[in-house]
Every structure is written in C-alpha cells, then in structure tokens.
C-alpha cells in the first residue's frame, strides 16, 4: 500500500508470478491430472477466484487508505461477486428441471422454459406428463 516510492514494485512482481503459477496449475489440473470432472471443475474455479483476488488486492489496490474511499471499493467488488454467484448458480438451478438434451423434435423445451422462469418446482410435474406421452 505504501510502496509507491520504491523503485521495484515488489507487490506487483509477486502478484504476477503467482498469477502465472496459478494459470499453469489450473491448466495442468484440467488437462494433465487424472482427477474426476467434478473435482477438476471445483478446483479450477477456486484457483480462478484466488487469481481474481490477486488482481484486486495486489494490482488494483482495492483497499488503500490514500483513496479516502473507505470500504466502498471492496464492498462493490464483494457484492458484485455475490450477485454473480447467485446469477450463475441460480440460473443453472432453475434451468436444471426437465431441461433435457435430446433433440426429439417435441415442443416441450419451449414449454418448460416458460415454466421455469416463475415456478421451477412445477417443472417436475410437467416433465412427468411428457414422459407419459
């Protein structure tokens, strides 16, 4: 935070080295390791969050007293991240009911898409009906 007069910006160099290492680790986890798909997805997402944190804290100075902006920048980023998690996880959850991958030409996909917007719990019933046909 107070290193702006130093010639070599240690924080930036460490942040950069960590970012490169984390990127390579994520690439190896996904392409080179023998972990199961679920473990790969969870671990590389965690690595991505750590790397985003490095950008925010070591490069963007999200908390620095000189800014006189208090906790607001940090709060904006945190609430943004929470909203992002709700949007992505919530969409996946809502759309996971009866959203099948078969291409049997039946019109049920459109029908279910409309349903899932408002009452996702109703979809299970709708799905059951279609299977009955």
């Amino acid at each position: 935070m107070t290193d702006h007069n130093k010639r070599i910006p240690t924080q930036h160099v460490i942040g950069f080295a960590l970012s490169i290492a984390l990127t390579l680790l994520a690439a190896w986890t996904a392409l080179g390791s023998n972990l199961s798909t679920m473990w790969i997805i969870s671990s590389i997402m965690i690595l991505a969050v750590i790397q985003a944190g490095i950008q925010l804290f070591m490069f963007m100075h999200v908390v620095e007293s000189d800014s006189h902006n208090g906790h607001v920048p940090w709060n904006m980023m945190f609430h943004g991240a929470v909203l992002a998690a709700i949007l992505v996880a919530g969409s996946l959850f809502v759309m996971s009911f009866g959203f099948t991958h078969d291409h049997d030409g039946e019109n049920h996909e459109q029908h279910e898409q409309q349903d899932s917007g408002d009452h996702s719990d109703m979809d299970m019933e709708g799905d059951g009906e279609h299977e009955g046909h």
Binding site: S67, H68, N69, V72, P73, M76, M77, H79, G80, A81, L83, A84, L87, V88, G90, S91, L92, M95, F99
Partner: peptide, 27 residues
C-alpha cells in the same frame, strides 16, 4: 476521489453484466 469511487461502482455493475452472460453460457 469521487470519480474513482464512481468507477468502482461502474465495475460492480460490469461484474453483474458479465455474470448474466456467464449464466446464459452455463445454461
């Protein structure tokens, strides 16, 4: 100071913009 603060708020909105695109992609 206020301009920089405002830019952080803009970045918060940008996170949400990209989150909607990520959610669409995931679905």
């Amino acid at each position: 100071q206020m301009t920089i603060l405002g830019f952080w708020i803009f970045l918060g909105a940008e996170i949400v913009l990209f989150a909607t695109l990520f959610a669409t992609y995931a679905v």
